[in-house]
Amino acid sequence: MIDPFANNHQSMQIGELVIENQQDKIIIYGDIDLTFDATGHQQAQQLHDLTSKILQAFENNTEYNNNDDKSKEKDDQLDKNIDNPFL
């Protein structure tokens, strides 16, 4: 289990869902099939534990909205609309 927002080198995987830890953000990508069996239950519990730890990190740090420390010079998301090239 990662320690949310504590470092830039931890990652974990639940199913095909990849969670990367950084000091200023948590990156989650991939997908997961939560099947109605023991494996699905275990994965759901891991997701619950992870999101609980992330929420606890927010609650423990009132400075969470400070944008001074960015892990990238430019953010992954642009704040402007662009034309869809597939239309």
Results as ranks from 00 to 15, higher is better:
residue 6 A to R: 03
residue 76 D to Y: 15
residue 66 N to T: 05
residue 40 G to N: 06
residue 40 G to Y: 02
residue 66 N to G: 14
residue 28 I to Q: 01
residue 29 Y to G: 06
residue 49 D to G: 10
residue 80 K to G: 12
residue 8 N to K: 08
residue 64 Y to G: 08
residue 85 P to A: 14
residue 9 H to V: 01
residue 53 K to Q: 09
residue 51 T to C: 10
residue 30 G to M: 13
residue 51 T to S: 05
residue 35 T to E: 07
residue 58 F to A: 14
residue 19 I to G: 00
residue 27 I to G: 00
residue 6 A to Y: 01
residue 53 K to S: 07
residue 58 F to T: 04
residue 23 Q to A: 04
residue 47 L to R: 12
residue 61 N to M: 02
residue 49 D to S: 15
residue 65 N to Y: 10
residue 76 D to K: 11
residue 7 N to P: 01
residue 11 S to L: 04
residue 19 I to N: 00
residue 60 N to K: 10
residue 62 T to N: 06
residue 16 E to G: 10
residue 2 I to M: 03
residue 17 L to V: 09
residue 11 S to R: 08
residue 30 G to R: 13
residue 42 Q to C: 12
residue 30 G to Q: 09
residue 2 I to W: 00
residue 30 G to H: 09
residue 25 K to L: 09
residue 81 N to F: 11
residue 55 L to F: 05
residue 12 M to Q: 15
residue 54 I to V: 15
residue 11 S to V: 02
residue 85 P to W: 11
residue 25 K to N: 06
residue 28 I to C: 02
residue 75 D to Y: 07
residue 22 Q to A: 02
residue 29 Y to C: 05
residue 8 N to T: 08
residue 24 D to S: 06
residue 52 S to T: 12
residue 59 E to Y: 01
residue 37 D to H: 15
residue 73 E to Q: 06
residue 32 I to T: 07
residue 63 E to H: 07
residue 42 Q to V: 11
residue 71 S to W: 10
residue 61 N to Y: 00
residue 5 F to N: 00
residue 46 Q to D: 09
residue 8 N to C: 13
residue 8 N to L: 15
residue 62 T to W: 10
residue 64 Y to E: 08
residue 35 T to A: 04
residue 60 N to S: 08
residue 15 G to Q: 03
residue 71 S to I: 08
residue 52 S to A: 09
residue 77 Q to E: 13
residue 15 G to I: 04
residue 24 D to A: 10
residue 27 I to D: 04
residue 50 L to H: 15
residue 75 D to H: 05
residue 69 D to H: 02
residue 84 N to H: 14
residue 76 D to A: 15
residue 6 A to Q: 10
residue 70 K to N: 04
residue 64 Y to A: 11
residue 80 K to C: 15
residue 74 K to V: 12
residue 4 P to D: 03
residue 45 Q to M: 11
residue 65 N to I: 08
residue 14 I to T: 09
residue 85 P to I: 15
residue 74 K to D: 08
residue 65 N to V: 13
residue 46 Q to E: 06
residue 73 E to R: 03
residue 14 I to K: 03
residue 4 P to W: 00
residue 32 I to S: 08
residue 27 I to K: 02
residue 81 N to A: 15
residue 81 N to R: 06
residue 34 L to D: 09
residue 52 S to H: 13
residue 34 L to N: 05
residue 50 L to C: 14
residue 38 A to T: 13
residue 20 E to L: 01
residue 12 M to G: 03
residue 77 Q to C: 13
residue 34 L to V: 08
residue 60 N to G: 05
residue 67 N to Y: 11
residue 37 D to N: 11
residue 35 T to Q: 15
